[in-house]
């Protein structure tokens, strides 16, 4: 209990003091997880569209993979990406291991099935004739996708929230492929692990609280957009 109170006080002090190291980590967390979520959205919505609206060879298999992937353990993704990006791995020459790009890649892989899954669900909830209607009104390809996405925006916002929430709070993959390097790849979750390991439990808890506040703030913005969009 004393630790918990100390953590609240410490979190407040840290935020109030404007500690540049803390704000760097917060900004890095937002940028890395934000980029991963955005990329997952750009790739995941079209894939979700195909899965929701078309039937093709391997359709069921892909859908099964997506559903399985929604529960993919981040640390397994991290190991996989590590093996691919390590200097001995197939993409070792890119020298990406222990960089923020590697973290974005790993988080992208974690967020993608979530975004695809939520997209499939929300597009399937649309009226069945809607794509035909949009086509006869004159919408083609990307315009059609955009209009359908707009119709399904509540579900897609849920996809964003699920994807961002999953990657901003995961630690296994970020630790494995980012290396938790203080100056370049440390994010809030890996910082929490480090401070816990160092024995500074109040600081670790304070960082945890800051992570919660950050995730809450992002979800608040998205929820606001969602309620606005439902009108």
């Amino acid at each position: 209990m004393r630790d918990l109170l100390a953590a609240f006080a410490r979190a407040f002090d840290l935020l109030a003091s404007g500690d540049p190291a803390l704000y760097t980590i917060m900004a890095r967390t937002l940028v890395v997880s934000g980029a991963a979520t955005l990329l997952a959205l750009l790739a995941g919505v079209p894939i979700g569209y195909l899965l929701a609206r078309r039937r093709f060879a391997g359709h069921t298999l892909l859908l099964g993979l997506v559903n399985t992937g929604m529960g993919l353990p981040p640390v397994v993704v991290g190991l996989f990406v590590w093996l691919v990006l390590a200097r001995s791995g197939p993409l070792g020459d890119l020298d990406l291991i222990y960089t923020r790009r590697a973290m974005v890649l790993a988080q992208f892989i974690i967020a993608l099935p979530l975004v695809v899954g939520f997209t499939v669900t929300s597009l399937r909830a649309l009226p069945e004739r809607l794509p035909d209607l949009l086509r006869t009104l004159g919408a083609r390809r990307w315009r059609m996708l955009w209009l359908l996405a707009r119709e399904a925006r509540l579900g897609l916002l849920a996809a964003v929230m699920a994807g961002f929430g999953a990657v901003v709070s995961e630690v296994g993959a970020s630790m494995t492929v980012g290396g938790n390097l203080e100056r370049s790849t440390r994010v809030l979750t890996t910082a929490i692990v480090t401070e816990t390991g160092r024995g500074d439990v109040p600081l670790a808890l304070a960082l945890g609280l800051i992570l919660l506040v950050l995730a809450f703030a992002v979800n608040l913005v998205l929820t606001w957009a969602q309620t606005r969009g439902s009108r």
């Binding site: 390590a86 291991i97 290396g179 938790n180 100056r183 440390r186």
Partner: peptide, 15 residues
Amino acid sequence: ATGQGMGATLLVADQ
């Protein structure tokens, strides 16, 4: 700094 154990730090230094 890795903020991690010796094994992980060796892997990072190696890479």
